[in-house]
């Protein structure tokens, strides 16, 4: 079947099998391998992308279900060499080691801050509880999200 899906603001059109999962549709698009594919069982969260602004597990959605929706992947965060504050936070707070969970964590955390610009540590932990990180013990990920929230609050005040 033919699908046309908006990925990071660009229309990606292709012939696919109806059984193709969104994660593979994305990763088979040139330059879009940032979305990771881990457990394949909806548990690890490495594959999280945003669908209409909400984080979703792309290994558990058919690409065919996404026509007419806005998909955003980790590649959309950096714009013209400028990192998103959430990426800066991960950098500043050493919130990754191997980096496998990072794309999912970033897209989940970005959606959290868009909805709730000043989350508590518990709210951050709850939001990222659908992602598994085998390296960091989560502590630095929570600090990174805090860092980004504070950075964005400060940036807003300056304007």
């Amino acid at each position: 079947m033919h699908v046309s899906i908006s990925v990071n603001g660009e229309q990606v059109s292709r012939e696919i099998e109806p059984r193709q999962l969104l994660v593979h549709f994305i990763r088979e698009t040139p330059d879009l391998t940032g979305t990771h594919w881990g457990c394949d069982t909806s548990n690890c969260g490495a594959c999280v992308v945003q669908m209409d602004g909400q984080p979703v597990k792309s290994c558990t959605i058919l690409a065919a279900m996404c026509e007419g929706h806005e998909i955003r992947t980790v590649e959309s965060l950096e714009v013209d060499g400028q990192l998103d504050p959430i990426q800066m936070g991960f950098h500043e707070q050493h919130a990754l080691q191997c980096g496998f969970c990072t794309p999912g964590m970033l897209m989940t955390a970005r959606a959290l801050l868009d909805e709730n610009p000043n989350p508590t540590d518990l709210e951050i932990r709850t939001a990222i509880s659908g992602g598994i990180c085998r390296c960091t013990g989560y502590k630095n990920i929570v600090s990174a999200v805090r860092w980004a929230a504070e950075y964005e609050a400060a940036a807003k005040q300056e304007v």
Binding site: S42, V56, T60, I61
Partner: peptide, 9 residues
């Protein structure tokens, strides 16, 4: 029930 990301769907 599951986690917030699953609960979005």
């Amino acid at each position: 029930i599951a986690d917030p990301v699953v609960r979005n769907r």
